[in-house]
């Protein structure tokens, strides 16, 4: 039984290691400065980059964060500071359920909510879809970080005669600020890798576009299209795009997790 546990651990780690190894081995050769700076070339012309997709992803993720972070942090602080009643439990449970909704379903909902009323695919629709995906994670991790603020801070501030809202706004939130920022960024970084909700909201775009009411390119959708294309050069670039995407997402996550730990230990 003990040997079986060792074996299971090894078998679990093996494919994950293989994926990372292939990602680096196949993605690295085409990784160059021009990949970040150049536009995609037409079929048949080698080279080119995904500059528009990288910028597009940043815009989509920024838009999503702009919508989700204020709401998510507000809700998280509410749950941590005032969340004792039935309403708060219901919010928690609903946020958890929202976190389990498949991203493709969120995409379908954003299609109905934004694409149809606006009359076409747009960066804004993609941003709304990503915001919905970020929201539950931001709420629950903000709640967790705010709870870490020692109770004595609140008691000290209340003892000095501060009203409840000032205690939260001027003592608890500043004390938890680093944690709140990292927790939100983590959710935002993870949303950067989402493909499914963008397929029929932001759609994709082979050209340079930063307009919020037009279809916009994104890195994950580019990787998806390039991987399925029957051209070797595109397939190579798909690997590079995937590598860049993973570096963006896990790089930020790893960095933040380490800082969160440090903040939590302090």
């Amino acid at each position: 039984m003990i040997a079986a546990c060792y074996a299971a651990g090894a078998i679990v780690v093996l494919p994950l290691a293989l994926i990372l190894w292939h990602l680096i081995a196949k993605g690295l050769p085409a990784l160059s400065l021009s990949f970040f700076l150049e536009m995609p070339k037409p079929v048949g012309e080698p080279g080119g980059g995904m500059a528009n997709a990288i910028v597009g992803t940043l815009i989509l993720v920024g838009l999503g964060a702009l919508l989700a972070v204020p709401v998510g942090v507000g809700a998280g602080v509410y749950l941590a500071e005032f969340g004792r009643g039935r309403f708060a439990s219901l919010v928690r449970y609903t946020a958890d359920l929202l976190g389990g909704v498949p991203s493709i379903v969120v995409g379908v909902a954003a299609y109905g909510l934004v694409v149809i009323p606006m009359g076409g695919f747009s960066a804004l629709a993609g941003g709304v879809a990503l915001a919905i995906l970020m929201l539950p994670t931001i709420i629950r991790s903000t709640e967790e970080v705010v709870r870490l603020v020692p109770q004595s801070y609140r008691e000290a501030a209340l003892a000095l005669g501060a009203p409840r809202w000032k205690v939260t706004q001027q003592v608890v939130i500043p004390a938890a600020r680093a944690g709140i920022v990292t927790a939100s960024m983590l959710a935002v970084a993870r949303a950067a890798g989402e493909t499914a909700p963008l397929l029929f909201t932001a759609l994709g775009n082979r050209f340079w576009s930063t307009a919020l009411d037009k279809p916009i390119a994104s890195l994950p959708v580019f990787v998806f299209d390039y991987a399925r294309a029957p051209y070797d050069d595109w397939n190579r670039q798909a690997w590079t795009g995937a590598l860049v995407l993973v570096m963006m997402v896990t790089g930020i996550s790893a960095l933040l997790r380490l800082t969160v730990r440090r903040v939590a230990q302090r």
């Binding site: 994926i19 292939h22 990602l23 950067a192 890798g193 690997w239 896990t250 996550s253 997790r257």
Partner: peptide, 18 residues
Amino acid sequence: ELLAAIPSIVYGIWGFFV
């Protein structure tokens, strides 16, 4: 937990090409 953050499209192209 870091691996859980890898986008699913990456698993997709690994399955497809490897």
